[in-house]
Amino acid sequence: MNSKSLEERVEVFGKNFDTSVRAWVSNDRSLNFLRTTSARLILSTITVLALYGIPAYQMFYRGVSIWLYVGALVLCVLLQKLSIRFAFDDDSQIDEYQHERRNRAYRRAYKRVATILALAIILVAENGFSLKQSLGSGFRYSFDLGSENWVFLGVFVCGLFVVQKYLSWGIKGESRAE
């Protein structure tokens, strides 16, 4: 009985704490420098570089730590969340303009992810088909990246889904408060 009430109290405390922190971060003006158009442009560029650049570097040169990739993506997502006032996280904290912009970002993100995945599948299939054509019918195409690169690919696919909505939010930032 006691442990249940303690659990409930901890849950309520956690929920309230989370909501308060989000509300504070969303409305605090000291973070407005992250919300301007130039800040969003820089942030989006860094996010794209982290998402595609790090695995591309790993594919060609190797030796990149997976934790560097994960850490870079987590940092980018955190900064993106602050930049758009947690618009994807909590419905109760956003108004109708942010709601509309968020829905538009979701639509764009779905299209982009679908396009990128379709292109990747076509590229892999086409690559295998061309090799088979040139090397004859005895050729067996195997898509072997090596275990390390498979992990990078897995993180990339997860990152693609998580990050795309923030990139699709757009670079248009907020104007100065009056």
Binding site: D95, E96, Y97, Q98, E100, E174, S175, A177
Partner: peptide
């Protein structure tokens, strides 16, 4: 101020700015 109007109608002050500039049509 934009902030005061925003507080009274329950939206973010940036949204009032977007409406004033005609960048967003409110519900």
């Amino acid at each position: 101020s934009r902030q005061e109007l925003a507080d009274q109608v329950g939206v973010h002050y940036q949204t009032i700015g977007y409406i004033e500039r005609g960048e967003y049509s409110p519900s």
